[in-house]
């Protein structure tokens, strides 16, 4: 494992911890898209079914369990927690995420490394992860004001994607048989979706002002 991959995993983990901290400390999920969280839970469940078939390392297995458990916990809190669910911005979170699921499933059936159950699910999870942030970005755009923790959450998620791209570039040059064009193309699309957010994040950071997205 190279340093970029490790930093990518760590920023991903930090983003989830920030989200859990926000929900736990403020007992509020305002500004957070339940649809994006549901998509992530689906992404992890579909991709990490290989927990039962392929063993890579203890690190990989532990991280997979952490990602599945935390994403389910977040969805559960937003839907069922007596206090937290009241702060959910339901009227702003109207992105039709089922279309994303259907489109990604169709794409995975057409484009995958091998037409097996696990490979189709794996490709599906990669495609879905690439676009899963869309409902969250739309929600932030609509609400305009972004609270600190929500801003940090999206920032670290974007940083995770950026580190993974560096990781692929590194692997491309250091490993003889590295070709993961499905992950790489999807990863580039996913990171590009953050470009706009990053732009406004850095502006607010530079001006030391509150993060605001244009309507």
């Amino acid at each position: 494992m190279n340093i970029f991959r490790f930093l990518g995993d760590m920023t991903h983990l930090i983003s989830i911890l920030i989200l859990l901290l926000k929900i736990y400390a403020t007992k509020s999920c305002s500004g957070i898209s339940l649809k994006t969280q549901e998509l992530y839970a689906l992404v992890f469940l579909a991709r990490y079914l290989d927990l039962f078939t392929d063993f890579i390392s203890v690190y990989n297995s532990v991280m997979k369990v952490v990602f599945i458990a935390s994403s389910l916990a977040i969805v559960w809190c937003m839907r069922r927690h007596r206090v937290v669910r009241r702060s959910y911005d339901k009227e702003l979170d109207t992105f039709r995420h089922y279309f994303l699921v259907a489109a990604c499933l169709a794409l995975a059936l057409l484009v995958q490394e091998k037409f097996t159950f696990l490979e189709v699910l794996w490709a599906f999870s990669i495609y879905l992860e690439a676009v899963a942030i869309l409902p969250q970005l739309v929600l932030l755009q609509r609400s305009g004001n972004v609270d600190n923790l929500t801003g940090q959450y999206v920032f670290f998620l974007g940083a995770y994607r950026a580190f993974y791209i560096l990781n692929w570039i590194y692997r491309y040059f250091t490993e003889t048989h590295f070709s993961r064009w499905i992950s790489c193309v999807s990863g580039l699309v996913q990171t590009a979706l953050y470009a706009d957010f990053f732009y406004y994040y850095f502006i607010s950071w530079k001006n030391n002002s509150k993060l605001q997205l244009p309507a």
């Binding site: 991709r47 392929d54 990602f67 097996t116 490979e119 990781n167 048989h177 590295f178």
Partner: peptide, 10 residues
């Protein structure tokens, strides 16, 4: 080389 079906990234 890496076998198809083994995904070592998260």
């Amino acid at each position: 080389g890496e076998a198809v079906g083994v995904h070592d990234e998260l």
